[in-house]
């Protein structure tokens, strides 16, 4: 448990440091995840890390609750342009998901069709 936390926090710290030093517009944890993935693919996944990582990710929804509560504070911002923003969010998000999935399927079929 503690060794898993050390690994996760250590990678996050390295990621934050890298992002600050290189001045790139990416969150530190994303770089931390890339560093950890690189390390794990070389050395394998230590058994102590697996249950902690999966435990956190199974409850990922919990971690968005404080930020979502914060959003409610900004209710008036949404209400001001409410209808337009709601329409745009629903349409744009739905279309983007549909395009992503359909393009993935199309290209995956074509690639596997070629190799067979």
């Amino acid at each position: 448990m503690i060794n898993a936390l050390v690994v996760l926090l250590g990678c996050q710290l390295l990621g934050e440091v890298a992002v600050r030093l290189l001045d790139v517009p990416v969150p530190g944890p994303v770089v931390g995840a890339a560093l950890l993935a690189a390390a794990l693919s070389v050395r394998g996944i230590p058994s102590f890390l697996t249950p902690v990582a999966h435990g956190i990710l199974r409850n990922l929804s919990l971690l968005f609750v404080p930020a979502a509560v914060g959003v409610v504070q900004y209710g008036p911002l949404i209400v001001e342009h409410g209808v337009s923003l709601a329409i745009i969010l629903v349409v744009s998000t739905t279309v983007a998901m549909a395009v992503t999935a359909l393009v993935f399927r199309m290209v995956a079929n074509r690639v596997s069709g070629r190799s067979e």
Binding site: L5, L8, L9, C11, Q12, G15, P27, G28, P29, V30, G32, A33, A34, L36, A37, L40, I45, L49, T50, V52, A53, H54, I56, L57, L60, L62, L63, F64, V65, P66, A67
Partner: peptide
Amino acid sequence: VHFLLGPATVALAVP
């Protein structure tokens, strides 16, 4: 809880 978003993002490397 909010803080754990960072380590959770790093944990995505495992799956």
